[in-house]
Each structure stands twice: as C-alpha cells, then as structure tokens.
Simulated scan of single mutants.
Amino acid sequence: MALELKLSKPGDAAPKLSLNLAKPARFTVELSWDSAHDLDTHALLATNGGSGAKVTSFDQVLSTYNAKKTNPQGVLTTNADGSFSTPEGGITHSGDARTGVNLDVDETLSIDGSKIPAGVNEIPIFVTIHAAGAANFSSVKNAGIRIKNDQGLVLGEYLLSNEFGPFNAVQMGSLLLDGSGWHYLAAGSGFNGDFNFILSHFS
C-alpha cells in the first residue's frame, strides 16, 4: 500500500468549489443528394478492444432497416416526429428519406456523447445505396456527407458522387472515445455490398 499524506496545514484556506465546465460532445452527420436514388445513413454503437469495432446486439445498430416503422422486425422505436433513436437516445436518425429531391439535407444523425452507453468507445458511420447493385455513387447526383461538432465546425466531408463513384457503400469514419473525450477519425473506405455485408464485419 502506497504511503500518502494529507497535504494541508492548519489555517489553509478551504478549497474553492468548482465545476467541470466541459460540455458533453455532440455531433451532427448530414447526408444530402439531388436525385431519385435512396441513400441511407447508418451508425453502430461499437466496442473496440484492440481487435476492431464490434456490436453484439441489434440495439447497437442505428439503421432504417432496424426501425420498426420501416421493418416490422426492427428493434428501434420510431419517435413522434418520424425520427428513431438507439434505446438510450445517444444517436437519433432524422428518418428515412426515400429520395433526395426535396431538401438541402436529406438525412441527419444527431449524436449525444453524454447518452452513449458505458463500454461503447467507437461509433462507425456509413452511407449505403438501397438495393445494392442497382446503382453506385457516380449515378447519384450531388451526393455528399459531412460531420460537424456542436459549434458547427465541419470535421470531415466527402463528395460521394465524385470521390466514391464506383462504390455503393462508404464508411465515412468513426467517432472514437479516449481519455480526452470523443473525436472524429476519418476513414473514407468505399466498397460494394449491402448493409448486412457491413454488419458481417462488425459483429
């Protein structure tokens, strides 16, 4: 047992009260495109113990394919406004946009670091084209994705139509939790396959 002394003396001023002024990390992922294709954003509440990020439950999978509104077998409950969230509310999806012809930003993910479950230290973020094989990003007009912090600073951005033209799926990157908090690590990894192909590498 290590020796330890109380480092105060009679007459020392009482320590002042102080609060931790660091705010929980919050991030927004914005996906946009300008054509009739159906793009989707997805995120995983993963644990990475050094051998890659893994999920073990569908509660950890934020995807339109896992929302009860779009899939009766899904486990994620749809909110009153059409969005859906992971059970603890750490990640919320704005709702499935079937085309990209009406809005400037078609789908968003809102990530609240204060609500991420204990043990989760990586949040991989993906974009896919629904009905994999029917199209790739070069056939989608003005497809792009960006991630911002809570001050609106863009931490990462990809022009999917140009940079990932031959592919129908992209891992944008991951939010990583370490001793200093949450931060974004870009990946920019394009591939061809559906969302179950992605899950096969993370489960």
Rank of each mutant, 00 (worst) to 15 (best):
198 I>M: 05
45 L>I: 03
149 N>K: 12
202 F>R: 01
64 T>R: 03
61 V>R: 05
16 K>L: 12
47 T>V: 01
125 I>L: 02
119 G>P: 08
174 S>T: 15
162 N>P: 02
41 T>A: 12
146 R>P: 04
120 V>Q: 01
20 N>F: 12
141 K>H: 01
146 R>E: 08
137 F>A: 06
151 Q>V: 13
41 T>E: 15
86 T>L: 00
152 G>D: 10
12 D>K: 10
177 L>P: 11
106 D>V: 03
170 V>F: 01
159 L>R: 15
9 K>E: 12
80 A>K: 14
130 H>D: 07
89 G>S: 00
131 A>G: 04
157 E>M: 04
49 G>I: 07
139 S>D: 03
147 I>H: 02
145 I>S: 07
129 I>E: 04
20 N>Q: 13
27 F>Y: 14
83 S>G: 10
79 N>Y: 06
97 A>G: 00
170 V>G: 03
164 F>D: 08
173 G>T: 08
135 A>F: 11
9 K>L: 13
32 S>W: 10
97 A>L: 02
46 A>Q: 00
29 V>T: 05
44 L>W: 02
136 N>R: 11
29 V>C: 01
40 D>G: 02
6 K>L: 13
5 L>P: 11
169 A>C: 11
39 L>R: 04
194 D>E: 08
33 W>D: 08
44 L>P: 00
100 G>I: 09
71 N>P: 13
18 S>F: 00
165 G>V: 05
193 G>Y: 03
121 N>E: 01
153 L>T: 15
100 G>V: 04
84 F>L: 00
202 F>L: 09
186 A>I: 06
43 A>K: 06
11 G>M: 12
76 L>T: 10
8 S>Q: 14
27 F>R: 05
38 D>K: 03
47 T>F: 04
81 D>T: 02
167 F>L: 01
67 A>N: 14
88 E>P: 09
86 T>R: 03
78 T>R: 08
18 S>M: 05
152 G>F: 11
94 S>K: 02
116 I>R: 04
107 E>M: 01
150 D>W: 08
78 T>A: 12
112 D>Q: 12
103 L>T: 02
122 E>H: 09
64 T>K: 00
183 H>L: 07
125 I>M: 00
185 L>T: 15
138 S>P: 09
92 T>R: 06
184 Y>I: 10
48 N>L: 01
51 S>K: 11
123 I>G: 02
193 G>Q: 03
83 S>F: 00
188 G>T: 09
115 K>M: 02
161 S>N: 10
188 G>K: 13
109 L>G: 04
127 V>K: 04
156 G>F: 13
155 L>V: 10
17 L>C: 08
138 S>Q: 14
115 K>Y: 05
52 G>Y: 04
160 L>S: 08
104 D>C: 05
122 E>L: 05
8 S>W: 14
100 G>N: 07
14 A>K: 15
117 P>H: 05
76 L>A: 11
93 H>K: 06
195 F>H: 07
153 L>P: 01
138 S>R: 14
178 D>T: 14
159 L>N: 15
14 A>M: 13
36 A>P: 10
121 N>G: 08
174 S>Q: 14
